Computed example of a mutant assay.
Amino acid sequence: LEIDSAFRIIVNYSGLLYIVIGLWLVTALAYLLDYMTKKDKDISDYKESIGGGVRLAWLVIIFVIIGSGIFLLLDVNVNGNAERYGVISNYLLFNDEWGTHRGYIWRNAIESFHAFSPFKKLFGFGPDTFGIVLLDKTKGNVYGELFDNAHNEYLHYLITVGILGLAAYLTYLVSFVVRCIRRGCSNPCVIAAMMAVVCYSTQAFVNLNLPIATPIMWLMLTLGALGCSGNGQAKDVGN
């Protein structure tokens, strides 16, 4: 999906200039307050802190955004109110055209998985065989393309290594995040590594595991796990 749908909303909004000016003013004010707080203190004694009210407000904003996104997706795809949202509906309506034909790939992949035998559903068709699975099913498609990757890591693993393989991968990721929260929350380096893995795992819903990015994710995962090792205390991975 081309980005012009979002650009049409942003560029045509008359208050865009005032929003930009307001954000610059807020940024300048934040830096000014930060400078006023630090200038009379020894830098070695300064410790950055964020009040509980700010954290609570940020948490509320996150939940509002997530809740709004879920509502919009349900309203468009379940209730059929795509026309209500204009050009935004291009991002919300899941069909064959969604996400540069990702919807088409996903639909055919899911249909192929349903046709698998029980054994193949458990263990998959085999590593790196996604293109083979979809070759005949999508032959002569209207897009004139060959699909050798699901552009969704989890669906890709479901087809190639099956339910058990996908479950093992998800268990590994989830247990890593839980371990970091429980044993490494006092170490910002561990939390940073954990968030890098979380961000990668989120974008993996619509992307493939590129050689230039995936090894870095595994490196962050290793560093986070290392920081959580020892006698229940997070080590200083940053050093």
Rank of each mutant, 00 (worst) to 15 (best):
L1Y: 04
E2R: 10
D4Q: 09
S5E: 12
S5P: 05
S5R: 10
A6N: 00
I9S: 09
Y13D: 07
S14V: 04
G15Y: 10
G15L: 08
L16A: 10
L16S: 06
L17V: 15
Y18L: 14
V20I: 15
G22S: 14
L23Y: 06
W24Y: 13
V26C: 09
T27I: 10
A28C: 06
A30K: 05
Y31D: 04
L33G: 10
D34R: 12
M36F: 08
T37L: 09
K39I: 12
K41T: 06
I43C: 10
I43V: 13
S44W: 02
S44Y: 05
S49R: 14
I50H: 01
I50W: 04
G53K: 11
V54C: 14
R55M: 14
L56I: 08
A57I: 12
V60H: 05
I61L: 06
F63Q: 10
I66C: 07
I66N: 03
S68Y: 07
S68N: 08
S68I: 01
G69K: 04
I70D: 06
L72I: 02
N81S: 10
A82V: 02
A82K: 05
G86D: 13
G86I: 03
V87R: 13
V87N: 11
Y91A: 13
L92Y: 03
L92N: 05
N95R: 11
D96G: 10
E97V: 07
G99C: 06
T100D: 09
H101E: 10
R102M: 08
Y104C: 09
N108Q: 12
I110Y: 07
I110S: 07
E111D: 09
F116Q: 04
P118S: 01
F119A: 14
K120E: 15
F123L: 15
F123G: 08
G124R: 02
G124F: 02
F125Y: 14
G126V: 00
P127I: 09
P127A: 12
P127E: 13
T129I: 02
G131M: 06
L134A: 13
L134C: 07
V142H: 15
V142M: 15
Y143I: 01
G144T: 03
H151A: 03
N152H: 08
E153P: 01
L155C: 05
L158V: 01
I159L: 08
T160G: 00
I163C: 00
L166M: 05
A167N: 03
A167Y: 01
A167S: 14
A167I: 07
Y172K: 07
V174T: 14
V174E: 06
S175D: 09
S175P: 05
R179F: 08
I181G: 08
R182K: 15
R183L: 15
P188Q: 05
C189A: 13
V190A: 03
A193G: 09
A193H: 08
A196M: 13
V197S: 05
C199Q: 12
S201F: 03
T202A: 14
A204K: 01
F205L: 15
F205R: 03
F205I: 15
F205S: 06
V206Y: 14
N207Y: 03
L208G: 14
P211F: 02
I212F: 11
I212D: 12
T214H: 04
P215A: 01
L221A: 06
T222N: 09
L223V: 11
A225L: 14
L226P: 00
S229I: 04
S229Y: 04
G230L: 03
N231Q: 11
G232S: 07
G232D: 05
K235R: 11
K235P: 00
V237R: 02
N239R: 06
